[in-house]
Simulated assay, not measured.
Amino acid sequence: MKKLFSIAILSLSSIVSAQAAVVIIGAPSAADISASDAKKIFLGKGSSALVPFELDENNPVRTEFHSKVTNKSDAQLKAYWSKQVFTGKGNPPAKVSSAAAMKSTVASTPNAIGYIDEADVDSTVKVILKP
Rank of each mutant, 00 (worst) to 15 (best):
I7K: 05
A49G: 12
L129G: 02
F5H: 04
L12V: 15
S17A: 15
L55V: 12
A30E: 08
A21T: 13
S17I: 10
A79G: 05
Q19W: 15
D74F: 08
T105P: 11
S36L: 13
P92T: 10
K95W: 14
S108D: 01
S6M: 07
S108W: 02
K130Q: 15
A38L: 07
E54C: 07
K3M: 10
A18P: 04
I7M: 15
K103D: 00
I41E: 03
R62K: 14
T109Y: 08
V51D: 08
K2S: 10
S34D: 02
S73C: 01
V96A: 00
S29G: 11
V96S: 00
S108P: 00
A79Q: 10
T109Q: 08
M102C: 02
E118P: 01
N59C: 06
D37F: 04
F42N: 01
K40M: 11
A79D: 06
D74L: 14
V125T: 08
P28E: 06
L77P: 05
G90D: 01
T63R: 13
K3L: 10
W81P: 03
L55F: 12
I9L: 13
S29H: 12
E54W: 13
S98W: 07
T87A: 14
Q76A: 15
Q76D: 10
T70G: 01
F42H: 07
V51P: 06
D122G: 00
P92Y: 10
S47E: 09
S73I: 07
A30K: 05
T63W: 08
S82T: 10
A79M: 13
P110Y: 06
P93Y: 00
D122Y: 02
M102W: 03
S82M: 12
V96T: 00
I25W: 11
I25T: 07
L43Y: 03
P52L: 00
A100I: 03
L50A: 09
D37L: 03
K45I: 13
M1K: 07
D56H: 12
D117L: 11
I9W: 05
A107Y: 11
K103G: 00
N91W: 09
K40Y: 07
I9E: 09
A99P: 15
N111P: 14
F65H: 13
S67K: 09
N59M: 02
E54K: 10
A49N: 11
A20G: 06
K89P: 09
R62I: 07
S36G: 04
S82L: 06
K39H: 06
A49K: 14
S13C: 11
I15V: 11
A20W: 13
K83T: 12
A35T: 14
K68F: 12
P60I: 13
V23I: 05
V69T: 15
S13R: 10
G44M: 01
A27H: 08
P93F: 00
T109M: 03
K130S: 08
G26H: 06
L4R: 13
E118S: 09
D120M: 13
N71K: 03
K72V: 04
G88L: 12
S104P: 12
V96C: 03
L77N: 14
K3Y: 09
S98V: 01
